[in-house]
Design a protein around this nucleic acid. Structure first.
Length: 126
DNA sequence: TACATGACGGGAT
DNA sequence: AATCCCGCCATGT
């Protein structure tokens, strides 16, 4: 495979963790990094989401991984996703009942005190 | 192969 | 309180 096995495992871990974010809740790139055991690489979590396949046949794809529930530490939707991607993400979150506020700078923010999901560890998969 | 970039974060300034 | 700066490392050029 193109990517190293280590990277492959990292991607898998991140996607699996993301799938555990409950409907109507959100978490941060940093927390996912923490959950998969690499708290110093939140940036790589972003890379994982960026490369999330749209291919329905892939084990992990944009349909079965709730990537929209992953936002940055400031409680805002990452503005660097795709052009207008942030708007779509905000809409998807509102659809889940999450209150998304639009700031003057065109950023979409969420109250992590209310909608944040920050478990200490992942639940066992069977 | 080498260098730049980036769905980020936290400490320093 | 707002910015800057650096670490991290898979990808893109």
């Amino acid at each position: 495979m193109a990517r190293s096995d280590e990277a492959q495992a990292f991607f898998h871990a991140v996607y699996s963790a993301a799938q555990q974010i409950p409907y109507g809740k959100v978490t941060t790139y940093a927390h996912l990094a923490y959950l998969v055991g690499t708290p110093q690489r939140p940036r790589q979590v972003g890379v994982c989401m960026k490369h999330l396949p749209h291919d329905e046949d892939a084990v992990f794809n944009s349909s079965n991984v709730p990537w929209q529930r992953v936002i940055n530490s400031k409680g805002a939707v990452s503005p660097r996703s795709q052009p207008s991607g942030a708007t779509n993400q905000a809409a998807a979150l509102r659809k889940e009942g999450i209150e998304v506020t639009r700031t003057a700078m065109g950023e979409f923010t969420i109250d992590l005190e209310v909608y944040g999901w920050f478990p200490e560890e992942l639940e066992e998969e069977e």
